[in-house]
Design a protein around this nucleic acid. Sequence first.
DNA 1: ATGAAAGCGCTAACAC
DNA 2: GTGTTAGCGCTTTCAT
Lengths: 341, 341
Amino acid sequence: MIALHDVARTAEVSKATASRALSGHGYVAAETRDRVISAAAALGYVVPGTSALPRGRTSTLGVVVPHINRWYFGEVLEGIEHALVSSGYDLTLYELSSDASERRRVMENFLVRRRVDAVIAVGIELTVSEVDLLRSLATPVVGIGGHVDGVTTLGIDDVAAAAIATDHLLALGHRDIVHVGADHYTEPDSPVYAQRLRGFRRAMATAGLEGRFRVSPLSIPDGFAHGLTLLADDTQRPTAIVAGSDEIAIGLLLAARQLGLAVPAELSIVGIDGHQLAELFGLTTLEQHPRQYGSSAVALVLATLAGSASETAPTWQPSPAHLVVRSSTSAPAHDSGREVV
Amino acid sequence: MIALHDVARTAEVSKATASRALSGHGYVAAETRDRVISAAAALGYVVPGTSALPRGRTSTLGVVVPHINRWYFGEVLEGIEHALVSSGYDLTLYELSSDASERRRVMENFLVRRRVDAVIAVGIELTVSEVDLLRSLATPVVGIGGHVDGVTTLGIDDVAAAAIATDHLLALGHRDIVHVGADHYTEPDSPVYAQRLRGFRRAMATAGLEGRFRVSPLSIPDGFAHGLTLLADDTQRPTAIVAGSDEIAIGLLLAARQLGLAVPAELSIVGIDGHQLAELFGLTTLEQHPRQYGSSAVALVLATLAGSASETAPTWQPSPAHLVVRSSTSAPAHDSGREVV
DNA sequence: ATGAAAGCGCTAACAC
DNA sequence: GTGTTAGCGCTTTCAT
């Protein structure tokens, strides 16, 4: 275990000088610095995580997600990870199970106790007390997906997004539209699905219609299963579906095909998210950019930590997203994107 | 920021006693302990990450992956995360880009410098020098996927797995079989795809045949694209395909369907991994259990850290996996699993 | 420009 | 049983 001590001794300087030489803080003679740096290199020394302890820092960024193995979250994580490389910060990952007490434990015990210098909450509805807690510790927080009061959040306006998806179908002449997605009960941590449901209902109400809603877990197999039951009986089959996520939409699409329904001729489906498979399946969907949210969020928290963008009022600005309409069921044809603020 | 100091003062004891009371180590009067504990609770104190510093520990487990947003890796991560909950350990995640210097930086600067107490390498071929480095620091390492000399690794025998998949097709009477997968060049960090290729070649050679090989990135869209070019021309179309991963297999399957080919009547496809969509697509595949690998790996490293299973010779035992043969292209029908050691 | 010393928040020997 | 002391590996005043 090579410690600063060893580097200092090899370079024949004190620990203090070695520290300055390596960190770049404070005065140190050019010649001395070179000696220290080559000693460090020769010994294979690299600065440990404890180095920020005296400054009360951990060099660690906490990321909280409700799920790891879902496309959207995976993209966000990759975006974060890439942005973090060569920042000197580590990414520590917390998956919040749906268990409430478990959630409390993670939030309070880990995030809050100087185990992380900042937190990025992805698809998590932080409670006011959680936000207060972090704020009282001066821990920068930025959210991704949804909207949490008082914290800068990256993501689309989910209500508007679902409304646009719905309006698209209404404009196509559809009247019997159902929303297959999640709500507050199936995705208790995440605010976005309930908002998408609201957007759907709002758009339908505005058109003077009453939309149906079916709850489904957010996976392709679940979408498929729901599709089979929903679409098999043509007395209750809708002419169009707004899916709560692309996974559901793809599942529904597969179910429709399995039942021999022509999409979009006999059934129109629109999803939300921009899943990598959307184009492959010819899925009309509202695309956002989770990977960019990740890197932008990192930039934000790092800036705050560096003291630059400190406490500018956390204003929420929905990220741009656009509806990618695909008419054929399998011939990838981009664009005709409609901007969503 | 509530420190142990505050708890101690509130409970009217010394920091040492407070520490003992909270950690459970060493003698402390029951009555005193209660006082400390309630003081801690009242103040909202929780032990910080620095608590293990004096013992030279970080309470952190490093996990290295080549990709985050792929089904297999996501499953492993979820398995690890779940196993870690309430262990007191944090999971810090490193995604190794394919850039070699970047990889060196991560391996040396982060993993090795007491930033983590142990590491789990998922689908990463550690070099001997990397293993030596970690070993010299007494950092426990366990691998998942593939096989690294000197480190206990969880996963199937990929050579055998691919051979079994190939043999299955041979037994079905196929002679013109192609392998669509990755090799050392497309997935430089991961040993497993090259091994699967070897298993395929070996099985073909044993049957006195020469199998064709096509390189493809490991995603559904890429599998789809390769499928279109490979299957469109029926002069060069094989009768069966061994895919290097389920993503590729599913992509191929979709391409085949798009081209109007009946699967498995006109084209047999077998995948490897047990992707959640395999059943949905009626894909015959060799299933392993990435989530369990994750939790088992955690159990292993924690045991080593706790000193129990210390330095027992790291022997590699392939995990069980079995070939799930599905005959229909869309009717989920389990079973007829063949064990693979 | 450099070194000595104090201290980040905690644990562990060692005394009492 | 409990307090005192030293020290984990580093950064940072404060002298010099």
